[in-house]
């Protein structure tokens, strides 16, 4: 029942300029991936070519970094799903001593700057003389992935009415059956969303990873290396474009799925 008044021109202009500011840099990434220029970031591109897609496709270091990133993200997400869901179930299902502390503890790794998480883990590893490996990366990633799953699961569990669970138990379902047939179907989409966010977060994470990785290169570390010491700029351009496409597809999918209904894709904060 809201009447929609017209926005004034300066306001519209400021908002439109803001939108251009937000979207233009991403559009540039797409254009540069096809530029024929090899040595510089020349604008406008002297010509367009598909050649670099093929070159990037054949680079073993890119594939290796990509594989490592996917593996780390998958395992971290799995750990976060288990720990985050259990924790959410406990916190939303009952009141107990230290409940607030647990919520704070879960949120802490994301509230503090990534560099603090990174250096804390690194100094702990060196104190305990743990060598850097695949698992030290996972350890760091899972720590900040728990919060995303937890947040999504807690929000959903709060909205799931307790009477349904009580009804199930009154009808003779045991805890396991209640979980399997009542709770899980109710929170499944929240877990899916949380898992997707956790995966994206881990896949893109660079700050903590620089502290917890040894010789291994995840895709963001590969990208960082290219940013500081560029080797073959066109390949970096192509990889940048592919990374954008891969992260944007889920956003677009989530947008089309949640269109019309309430938009629950949020879950901001890195």
């Amino acid at each position: 029942m809201r009447n929609t008044p017209r926005a004034s021109w300066p306001l519209k202009l400021a908002a439109a300029a803001g939108l251009v500011f937000m979207l233009a840099p991403l559009a540039l990434i797409f254009l540069y991936a096809f530029s024929t220029e090899e040595k510089t970031y020349q604008w406008p591109p002297p010509g367009l070519t598909l050649e670099w897609l093929a070159v990037a496709w054949q680079r073993p270091d890119v594939w290796k970094a990509l594989t490592l990133s996917v593996q780390v993200a998958t395992i971290s997400t799995a750990i976060a799903l288990v720990l985050g869901t259990l924790c959410a179930a406990a916190v939303s299902g009952s009141r107990f001593f230290g409940r607030e502390t647990i919520s704070l503890l879960v949120i802490l790794p994301i509230a503090l700057p990534g560099i603090i998480t990174g250096i804390a883990l690194r100094s702990a590893f060196s104190l305990m003389e743990i060598p850097f490996s695949f698992w030290t990366i996972v350890l760091g990633h899972a720590t900040f992935c728990i919060v995303v799953v937890y947040n999504n699961a807690v929000a959903r569990l709060r909205r799931t009415s307790g009477s349904m669970i009580e009804a199930a138990m009154d009808l003779g379902a045991d805890k396991l059956q209640t979980f399997r047939h009542i709770i899980l179907p109710n929170i499944a989409t929240a877990l899916l969303a949380g898992g997707m966010l956790a995966f994206a977060l881990s896949f893109d994470e660079v700050i903590v990873t620089t502290f917890t990785a040894g010789q291994q290169q995840t895709l963001p570390l590969w990208m960082l290396e290219e940013l500081i010491r560029p080797r073959q700029r066109p390949v970096t351009n192509v990889v940048a474009m592919v990374v954008v496409v891969v992260t944007l597809l889920p956003i677009l999918a989530a947008f089309y799925l949640s269109r019309g209904g309430e938009q629950s894709v949020a879950g901001m904060g890195k």
């Binding site: 991403l26 970031y41 994206a200 889920p250 947008f255």
Partner: peptide, 26 residues
């Protein structure tokens, strides 16, 4: 989309985009 795409696009890729924009020949 104007808010969500830049929010979720890769952090390093966004920095890279600005390196392209701010370069002397950019």
């Amino acid at each position: 989309l104007g808010v969500m795409l830049p929010l979720w696009a890769s952090y390093l890729v966004k920095i890279y985009a600005w390196k392209l924009i701010l370069a002397k020949e950019g």
